[in-house]
Computed example of a mutant assay.
Amino acid sequence: MSDQRERFAAVQKNGDGDLTSFQTSSGRVLEYQQALKEVQDGNIGGVNVFKGKDGEIYIRGDADGDPTNNLDQLPMF
């Protein structure tokens, strides 16, 4: 069975280069906190969440050995 969940297709970043919003494969635009909830709920494929050293929860791409699909490498929208 293939994974039919949405994936992140493009990103927006702030002036510091931090990810601020995501566009999904279906065209939805999610602010970071909304995207975080969707990932935690299992609605978005190819990504996971982790707790940073600062105690905050962050989104990151699944480690699959392919650097081209890292979140920082996605096109801007």
Rank of each mutant, 00 (worst) to 15 (best):
D16E: 10
E6Q: 14
F22I: 01
K53T: 11
I57R: 02
N14T: 04
D16A: 15
N70Q: 13
A9Q: 13
G46S: 10
G65K: 09
I44C: 05
K53L: 13
G52E: 10
D66Q: 08
G55C: 05
N14L: 05
E56F: 08
G15K: 08
A35R: 01
I44D: 03
E31Y: 05
D64Q: 06
V39Y: 08
Y58G: 02
T20V: 13
G61P: 01
G65R: 09
S2K: 14
T68G: 03
G52N: 07
L30E: 03
S26F: 10
R5G: 05
N14P: 01
E6Y: 12
Q33G: 00
L30S: 02
Q34S: 12
K13T: 05
Q23F: 12
V49P: 01
N48T: 12
D66R: 10
Q4V: 12
R7V: 12
Q73M: 14
V39I: 09
S25G: 03
N14Y: 08
K37F: 08
S2R: 14
L36R: 00
R5T: 07
V11I: 15
Q40G: 11
P67Q: 10
G45C: 12
M1Q: 14
G61T: 10
L71H: 06
R60L: 06
A9E: 14
K53F: 10
T24Q: 03
L30Y: 05
R28K: 15
N69Q: 04
M1T: 13
I57E: 09
M1C: 09
D72I: 10
E6L: 14
Q33N: 07
A9S: 14
Q33I: 00
Q4L: 15
E38K: 13
P67N: 11
Q4K: 13
D62W: 06
M76Y: 11
A10P: 00
A63F: 15
A63W: 12
P75S: 09
E38P: 00
G65H: 12
Q40L: 15
G15A: 14
T68S: 15
G45I: 13
M1S: 14
R5N: 04
Y58M: 04
S26H: 12
D62H: 07
F8W: 07
F22K: 01
L36N: 03
M1K: 15
D16C: 06
K13A: 04
Y58R: 06
G45W: 15
F8E: 01
R5K: 09
L71V: 02
N48F: 07
Q4R: 13
R7Q: 14
Q34T: 15
L74V: 03
L74N: 05
N48D: 09
R28T: 07
L36H: 03
N43Y: 13
D3G: 02
Q73N: 15
N48C: 09
I57N: 06
R28Y: 05
K37C: 04
E38V: 08
A9H: 08
T68E: 14
F8S: 01
P75Y: 12
D18T: 07
V39P: 01
E31K: 06
G42W: 13
Q12Y: 04
P75R: 08
Q33A: 03
D3N: 10
E56G: 06
E56A: 12
Q33K: 04
Q23W: 07
